[in-house]
Amino acid sequence: MTDKVIETKDLVAGYGKMVILHGIDFYVTRQEIVTIVGPNGSGKSTLLKAILGIARVLKGKVYYEGKDITNERLDKISKMGVGYVPQTNNVFTNLTVKENLEMGAYTIKDKKEVERRMEEVLDIFPDLRGRLKQLAGSLSGGERQMLAMARALMAKPKVMLLDEPTAALSPKYVDLVLNKIKEIRDSGVTIILVEQNARKGLEIADRGYVLVTGKVAYTGPAREILEHPEIGKLYLGLK
């Protein structure tokens, strides 16, 4: 249990006056894929944003490797080794693909290290190699998602938070993206995944959380949730 990379305790958070999360206990251990599923408006994305200090935490604590990072600034959290891929607006549309990747490695001072890192990341996402000079705004949805994940990987994060990476992607890309996520985990990165597509999201996960109206309705090994007779039917549209 000492191996918790990110942990939240009794987290109450929201935007402005509006409270969305009502006391969430959540953790992820090293090299795990944890998938957060739940119906629309259940606070899945808000949980990620509260961890990252984008949504305001009103009560409770967020810990990263045992350190309190509650309401810390996003740039400081990401410097500690937390990568974040937002659901929308996840690339810098006015920068080229290469510049996007360089921005991902903003915290790495050594230029050679950045280049080495870029080679490694491009090996994982070979499709991007031919498009380095292109503006990110001209990429397709699937390519943008790839670039967004590649960008987050550039900083050598210890943990990556992905917000619905498969939303609005064609079926071909959905499997590709999920496979890449597994690949990233296998290279030693802890993954927190928010997923609309509950079945696919849970299939690659080790554990899962089911969020309903800002509370954890169920948690356990991913397989258990998938096979649970009621949870799937009630909340996730699984048969």
Binding site: L52, I54, R73, L74, D75, S78, K79, G83, Y84, P86, N89, N90, V91, F92, T93, N94, L95, E99, M103, G104, Y106, T107, R151, A152, A155
Partner: peptide, 16 residues
Amino acid sequence: RAVANNPVLAAACGID
């Protein structure tokens, strides 16, 4: 340029 385009994402890259 990154901040002008998308401040949240820029912060997620560790940019102050």
